[in-house]
């Protein structure tokens, strides 16, 4: 996608987040705007890095790392970023993701139903095992590391 496409799509997405933030959490549009702008800038930098760097990392990895850096103690804008981002409730951008994700899988509904209950059971076991395994393993790691 071109930069301008990413930019416009992010802006439209930000409107959705502002809407969810207002309806779900009562944060006014004016209060959401600075935080949304910060998220927009981080996302755009991530887009540019994916295009420019030869390193093959997914775009979300860049978003996460840039977000972490600008809010970390080494960042000159740390306090501002943390303060404005705190107005955006953490689950507010999430409803829109759900809307896209739901539409994106809507053509697989029949296949899903046709696959039957066996695949569903296997899927449930894979997901449960993956999460439970992570819980057990991470609990162990954090205990060994002395963090908990």
């Amino acid at each position: 996608m071109r930069y301008i496409e990413w930019f416009v799509l992010f802006c439209l997405g930000a409107c959705g987040t502002a809407l969810a933030n207002f309806i779900g959490y009562g944060v006014s549009f004016m209060d959401s705007i600075p935080g949304l702008l910060v998220l927009l800038v981080i996302s755009m930098i991530a887009v540019a890095l994916v295009k420019l760097l030869p390193l093959k990392l997914p775009i979300v990895a860049y978003c996460s790392i840039i977000g972490l850096l600008v809010a970390s103690p080494i960042s000159p804008v740390r306090d501002f970023v943390i303060q404005v981002a705190s107005n955006i409730n953490f689950t507010a951008p999430f409803t829109m993701v759900g809307a896209f994700a739901g539409l994106a899988i809507s053509d697989q509904l029949k296949t899903f139903i046709k696959q039957g209950w066996k695949i569903l059971i296997v899927g449930i076991f894979v997901m449960t095992g993956t999460f439970l395994g992570s819980c057990i393993w991470d609990q162990l790691l954090l205990t060994v590391a002395g963090a908990i």
Binding site: I42, S43, S64, A85, P93
Partner: peptide
């Protein structure tokens, strides 16, 4: 597109 700002927020 939807998930990028969300992950950025978590990064912050």
């Amino acid at each position: 597109v939807g998930i990028c700002p969300f992950i950025a927020k978590l990064g912050i």
